[in-house]
Amino acid sequence: MTEGVYYILLSLFTPMHGYGIMQNVKLLSNQRVDLGAGTLYGALGTLVERGWIEPLQGIQDSRKKEYKITQEGILAVQSELTRLDELLSNGRKLLGGESE
């Protein structure tokens, strides 16, 4: 999972539209991850296709499309967390101890 996708999924625990996601990802990452609008658009399309997020059936005349994470998306985040945990703990075992 790319960091962009990971942060998009985290953002969508609260329903959000595109611009909101961009702002939120910036906030979460202390300005480090600045999602390009085109990249975000492509990622949202792929994630909907996979069933990890879904567009919210909101008010019809609202032009801004909002998205929300699905149960499958939550599972994907959980397995990503397990993977990241493993990466972190292996790195820390080698390096973390020495620096403390």
């Binding site: 600045d34 999602l35 390009g36």
Partner: peptide, 11 residues
Amino acid sequence: GPFTIYSDTDS
């Protein structure tokens, strides 16, 4: 702020 369209390698 900075404006980019594509921010990751794949896109």
